[in-house]
Amino acid sequence: MQITNDERDAVYKTIFSRRDVRSEFKPDAIPDDVLTRILTAAHHAPSVGFMQPWDFIVVKSQQTKAKIKAGFDLAHAESAAMFNDEKMSKYTKLKLEGILESPIGICVTCDRSRNGPVVIGRTINPEMDLYSTVCAVQNLWLAARAENLGVGWVSIVHDDVLKDALNIPDDISIVAYLCIGYVSHFNDKPELEKLGWLPRRNIDAAVHFEGWGKTAN
């Protein structure tokens, strides 16, 4: 199957306009067919040994979201204390989640025992199943952006909060909790870049040739 130039350009547009959304969510419901499309895109991510270790827990209940938000608030205060005074002042002013505002939350998990103890590609690097699940997260995120949905990854919450709120078994690993919904707008730049938290690295500094630290001839 060949990709046309227009299709290629649409993929790049989606990648470059993807944002981590926190404060722009609208309450509009996500149609079931749209939700199915983005979950199906996530389910078609590459996975080591074709083990497909992921599962997706869809959260719509405000009561369940409130439990997760309470866990976030505790972890947020815990995290703030880790920064120096200048960074802490900036950190506490940031909006870092949209748990209650987004119409849907999705918890992405990894079953590390799926398909048995020996899986092609995990024999030397067992963490490859976790990396595969992250690929599913990225697929979901890009598919959501193509549907004009915003996604926010909530990483500031302890796993036990999510496991308790969502009845996740102890042997299942949590990879991501995502807030998803339509938004008022997408920022032209990532929010942390826009606010000066950190600059974007130049691509030339991130690319090495034939070995670490070697530039192109």
Results as ranks from 00 to 15, higher is better:
E147Q: 15
G150V: 05
A205W: 09
I104M: 00
P46E: 03
C107P: 08
P190A: 07
K13S: 12
S89G: 10
D171K: 00
L195V: 00
G196W: 00
T215L: 10
V108Y: 02
S61V: 05
I203C: 02
S132T: 11
D160R: 14
V108L: 00
I120E: 11
T92A: 09
L100S: 11
P169K: 02
Y91G: 03
R37C: 03
M82G: 06
G49P: 01
P53A: 07
P27Q: 03
P53I: 06
P46N: 06
A176G: 09
F56W: 13
A144M: 13
V119M: 08
K87T: 12
D28A: 04
A206M: 02
E97L: 11
D32K: 00
L74I: 12
N115I: 10
S89I: 05
N167E: 04
K189P: 05
L198P: 00
P117G: 03
T215A: 12
L94N: 00
V175R: 03
F16W: 13
E78H: 15
P117F: 14
R112T: 15
L149C: 04
K194G: 01
L100F: 06
M1K: 10
N202C: 12
D55L: 12
F25T: 01
R200P: 11
V175L: 13
F83W: 02
L96N: 07
N187H: 13
Q52W: 02
V151W: 06
D204E: 06
T133N: 03
E101I: 12
I203H: 07
M51A: 15
N202F: 10
Q52F: 04
L162I: 09
R114E: 15
G121Y: 05
R18H: 11
Q62S: 14
E78R: 15
I3N: 06
N139V: 01
S89L: 06
N5D: 12
H208I: 01
W197D: 04
M1E: 12
L74P: 10
